[in-house]
């Protein structure tokens, strides 16, 4: 049976911890940082503000490349955040989920792609926002696999 991948499992594995940079070793002088060896950067803390409301999804397509989001990137969606003008949002559009930049122009919501090949969409019906995006993850280094 496969293991279930949950965001918090990252936290549970010591191997995923990133040590803070330590002072280079100098023979004879104890480093003042040695007392602080416990420090680590927790990626979950950095990327997940509200766990029960956070979902990880995947980008499909090139329309958000201007925002630095490419095909296959992981998108961390926080459903607890309220969208504001300029938010990156996952919206429900015609029964599908789409990633867009929300712009409020003269009181009217518009959905913008960040790629000149795609036209902005004016929202005329009720806008269904599934969640707000503050972080994305890109896996580099496929050459090493």
């Amino acid at each position: 049976m496969q293991s279930i991948i949950r965001p918090r499992e990252l936290q549970a594995r010591p191997a995923k911890r990133v040590r803070l940079a330590l002072a280079p070793v100098q023979a004879g002088f104890p480093s003042p940082a040695d007392d602080h060896l416990d420090g680590h950067i927790d990626l979950n803390e950095l990327l997940i503000e509200n766990e029960p409301a956070t979902f990880i999804t995947r980008a499909a397509g090139d329309s958000m490349e201007g925002a630095g989001i490419f095909d296959g990137d992981l998108i961390i969606v926080n459903r607890a955040l309220r969208p504001v003008n300029g938010s990156l949002i996952v919206a429900e559009l015609n029964g599908e989920f789409t990633l867009k930049r929300l712009r409020i122009i003269a009181g009217q919501p518009w959905l913008y792609a960040e790629n000149a090949h795609y036209k902005p969409i004016r929202v005329t019906t009720e806008l269904n926002v599934w969640g707000v995006v503050k972080h994305t993850i890109r896996i580099h280094g496929h050459a090493h696999e």
Partner: peptide
């Protein structure tokens, strides 16, 4: 004694929120 056969669940939705290879697709088109 871990059974290796699978249940019959022919119309199962993806495990959208728990499996990295089944997560939700968000269109960027």
């Amino acid at each position: 004694t871990q059974p290796s056969w699978e249940m019959k669940r022919t119309m199962r939705s993806p495990s959208f929120s728990t499996r990295i290879d089944e997560i939700l697709r968000v269109e960027c088109r």
